[in-house]
Design a protein around this nucleic acid. Structure first.
Lengths: 205, 205
DNA sequence: AATTGTGAATTGATTCACAGCT
DNA sequence: AGCTGTGAATCAATTCACAATT
């Protein structure tokens, strides 16, 4: 198996999409699927799907296709999905509290273990504890948290990031409209809503 | 000027990032910037920045750099940022209402003109009207809306999309965890929170 | 007969290297 | 002297074409 480092990031993204489609197939009691059919559902070319899967070994059967259950398990392993991963959320503003209300993460193997804010206030109908930023260091090390969702205002984003990294966070899903500067070993994925809209607005007529 | 079609999508994304950095420079009364400095702020290589900008003509001065104001205006034009673009939001659940509360769009040239839901209910502290889906067709054509933010549950996403496209929507920012099938002339950008987390989880240790 | 897995070809994006301005 | 703009070179991702397998 090749080391993680030389599998393209885009392939990993697509793996998640394939996984979604596989779940749907499983719900429909389908137990075998061809690369052509799965690729269609995922919106990619079948050769691309096969190339993506080939990074992880020979997962299909020639002449037949892929076993839905087996493939889904393998992808789950690759993505580290098969054990519940604790995540913290930093910055409980509008977007932050919306994400706390959004239950969809657990189904995908993530649990928001706690939320942090400089001014924590109890949120109605939420069982996730909202703690003061000063408690983050202890919480992260006690619960072995490696991932954080960052929903603080742009001007706090870099300093919050520096803190999180120092406390041991290794991956950040960043919603602040800023380019974060992090050490080599930390991964950042940024979701920038304004950038996405701007990008669309370029492509419309 | 080359046609839109052959400028890489990634360049357009980066244009938005450059624009952010330019705004910041302008706030600090900087009026000229070199490709090296701007690239550093945006987290890219200076040659890449110059290649990106070169698609739109000769925007800099050799030996000197780029004029901050002028470059910012040009990028604004390219991105269609310089006039307020009306956007509708479809699906007023947790995420949808969070985005309605999030004021950051207007600053970037977008205005959420209305929100739609199958069961509209008035939201406190929000001036954006929340209307019934059945009113979407009329609203879109009356206000010449071309862009929609889609925050409906996965199982409604495709059918909502079909409706929107039929009513004349040309660009969709999709937050539903689904691959949307749209006609050629419609652009979709998807933001899939679970996929982003999964992707990070692959890269940690 | 069907469908995977993969080397080779192609297409696309990034980076280099330097000529051309100011 | 400094910095942009860009053709050429490199690197990466996608797609093709077909041999291998069931």
């Amino acid at each position: 198996m090749p080391t993680k480092i030389d599998i393209p990031r885009k392939s990993i993204y697509r793996l998640s999409i394939y996984q979604r489609c596989l779940h749907r197939l499983r719900e429909n009691q389908v137990d075998t699927v061809s690369s052509a059919a799965l690729a269609k559902a995922a919106g990619v070319k079948s050769t691309q799907l096969r190339k993506d899967l080939a990074y992880f070994g020979q997962l299909g059967t020639r002449g037949l296709g892929y076993n839905v259950d087996a493939l889904s398990t393998t992808i789950g392993d690759v993505l580290g999905q098969n054990k519940l991963q604790p995540v913290i959320l930093v910055g409980v503003g509008n977007l932050g509290s919306a994400l706390l209300h959004y239950g969809g993460f657990r189904k995908e193997g993530f649990e928001i273990a706690a939320a942090f804010d400089l001014n924590p206030r109890k949120l109605p109908n939420i069982k996730v504890p909202v703690l003061n930023m000063s408690e983050a260091a202890a919480f992260i090390s006690r619960h072995h948290v490696k991932m954080a969702i960052l929903t603080v205002p742009a001007n706090n984003a870099q300093s919050a990031t520096n803190d999180l990294v120092q406390y041991g966070i290794q991956a950040i899903l960043n919603f602040s409209p800023t380019v974060l500067d992090v050490p080599e070993h930390v991964v950042v994925n940024s979701v920038d809503l304004a950038v996405e809209l701007e990008n669309l607005s370029y492509f419309i007529r």
